[in-house]
Design a binder for these strands. Structure first.
Lengths: 135, 135
DNA sequence: TTTCAGTTTATAATAATTCTAAAGTAAAAA
DNA sequence: TTTTTACTTTAGAATTATTATAAACTGAAA
């Protein structure tokens, strides 16, 4: 992924490329593998590894703008914090309870043979498989 | 389910049968079908439909004791509130985003044909299938 | 450059949950 | 029984994650 993509992500999210936003976008999208994070872990990284200041609200706003634009997805994890994922394709997750870590599972690695049909007038939007891990 | 079971649930959770706890246990376990709730929805019911007073902390404490004893399970749902389920068997869920409602899916209704193996030294604890619904 | 819409920031507000310490109550001991 | 002891409830404070606010700031267009 090249740096120029970062500005594309920002623009397509309706965000001007400010110092803060560029740092956030760089950290989230300028990488090869997908990445899972919470606002908290993201803030930790940003304050430690960059020179500029970040208000929490800026991080929340930027992450939500990326999510709204479809550049990030949200993962359901038990607990208080919200997890985000740079992998926006349809996929599944391992969750390691010991380390609170999420690991992506490619959609092709899970095959579901039988599934109930949606109740009454509803339709199935998507199916998420969540595999809890233990030691 | 008979009333006597309620006291067994309380005892096996290490809880003395106080007024409040009996009301909570009665509401949660004295029913035929499984039941999904949040602390909030449970409190609403209790204050409306019973005569005794409930401190929020009591509801939290009691529900957590039941969960710890294995009489309730917790369901991962996106959002701030924690959902609990009186169905403690291994099963899955529909989630209706419009109504924020959970619907149980019996384990037998979902058949998974292929699943990745757990990473490194980890083992699979359980597999949860979560089906998001739309209109 | 000036202007202006969009940004960042610190702080306050909100919401769910947990903690605390005092007052109350169930059950064991006498 | 009564007394005692250990467990409970309660109101309110504390905590944690998140969202809202309003003033100061800044990037980009005129």
């Amino acid at each position: 992924m090249k740096k120029v993509d970062i500005f594309k992500k920002l623009r397509s999210s309706g965000l001007r490329p400010t110092k803060q936003r560029v740092e956030i976008a760089k950290f989230l999208f300028d990488r090869d593998t997908t990445f899972h994070f919470t606002i908290d872990s993201l803030e930790n990284h940003l304050t430690k590894k960059t020179t500029c200041k970040f208000a929490l609200a800026t991080i929340y706003n930027t992450v939500h703008a990326f999510k709204k634009a479809g550049h990030l997805s949200e993962v359901d994890v038990r607990g208080k914090k919200t997890y985000f994922d740079t992998n926006i394709t349809n996929h599944h997750h391992f969750y390691d309870n010991e380390t609170s870590e999420l690991i992506d599972i490619d959609a092709s690695e899970v095959v579901i043979q039988k599934i109930p049909k949606a109740p009454n007038g509803k339709k199935i939007k998507n199916v998420e498989v969540f595999i809890n891990l233990k030691n």
